[in-house]
């Protein structure tokens, strides 16, 4: 049994778990940055900026996320190749869209045709990360936008009374205080992000879903030392348990962070903490 679980392909399965964790580790901060930018744009004084921020939030949230995943991967790929094409091959005369084909010059191919395999994989992975960040950035923007408005008005007025400029008020008063209001929404988003990671499979990354299908499929004695029937059900059961555990652990950790952040805040939960301590 332990021999079976350590075959080369199973090792790939374990590596793909790391891929998922890596995706989460990169996407979460990037999406948060997108969200912060989106939320700041949505409450900007400058109308076009505000419209841009608001429509970014509204459009991404109104459409099934999976449609966005499928859309952005092709769209981003084509956008990058188009830009490179314009920059690298200025004297190319044929149109880029020829009927059903998308044609760019050889030098503009992304990644380059002769690039090694790992470059292709990394490129695919970073497209996936960017896509996740764009979609989850919109959700995060929505949460942060709400959190910025939840900071008590009196706090900002006090800052202004002290003679702080708009920028100072924003960075020194609003941003530090908004996290406690944003955390419930953000932790919810984190759970959702965990549960969206299997969609990586649809973006062409060889993730755990891919390997579970691959390894679970019927194996004949001709190709492997460990023939077995259709075990995909058991592999997916294992994935199910993996995600359940992951969610549970996240829940516990996030509860701790919330308790830490609530400390000393003028909210009902903060009040309860003070009473419990006294």
């Amino acid at each position: 049994m332990s021999c079976y679980l350590t075959t080369g392909k199973h090792m790939s399965l374990y590596w793909s778990v790391l891929t998922v964790l890596l995706l989460l580790a990169i996407t979460a901060p990037v999406a948060l940055a997108f969200g912060f930018a989106g939320a700041s744009a949505a409450r900007s004084e400058f109308p076009p900026m505000r419209w841009f921020g608001k429509s970014y939030i509204a459009v991404v949230r109104g459409v099934p996320d999976i449609a966005f995943f499928l859309f952005f991967v092709i769209a981003l790929d084509q956008a990058i190749e188009y830009l490179r094409h314009k920059a690298l091959c200025p004297d190319w005369s044929e149109p880029i869209r020829q009927g059903n084909d998308f044609v760019v010059c050889q030098a503009a191919k992304m990644p380059l045709g002769e690039a090694p395999q790992w470059v292709h994989e990394t490129y695919g992975f970073s497209l996936a990360v960017l896509t996740f960040a764009i979609v989850f950035g919109a959700f995060a923007a929505n949460v942060l936008f709400g959190a910025m408005r939840a900071v008590p008005r009196a706090q900002l007025e006090t800052a202004e009374a002290y003679g702080m400029t708009q920028r100072q008020t924003f960075w020194r008063i609003l941003v530090p205080q908004m996290w406690v209001y944003a955390l419930p929404g953000l932790s919810n988003l984190w759970m959702v992000l965990i549960k969206a990671t299997p969609l990586l499979f649809l973006l062409g990354v060889e993730d755990i879903v891919y390997w579970a299908r691959e390894l679970g499929g019927t194996k004949t004695p001709r190709f492997t030392d460990y023939p077995h029937g259709d075990w995909r059900m058991w592999y997916f059961l294992a994935l199910l348990v993996f995600y359940l555990l992951f969610t549970r652990v996240s829940e516990i950790v996030l509860d701790r962070i919330m308790a830490r952040l609530t400390h000393g805040q003028a909210t009902a939960a903060g009040e309860a903490q003070r009473k419990a301590a006294a």
């Binding site: 299997p198 969609l199 299908r213 997916f236 199910l240 995600y243 359940l244 969610t247």
Partner: peptide, 14 residues
């Protein structure tokens, strides 16, 4: 607690 996507896969193979 688990992704719908995995639930679909599991359901189908079950």
């Amino acid at each position: 607690g688990s992704p719908l996507f995995i639930q679909f896969f599991f359901g189908y193979f079950l």
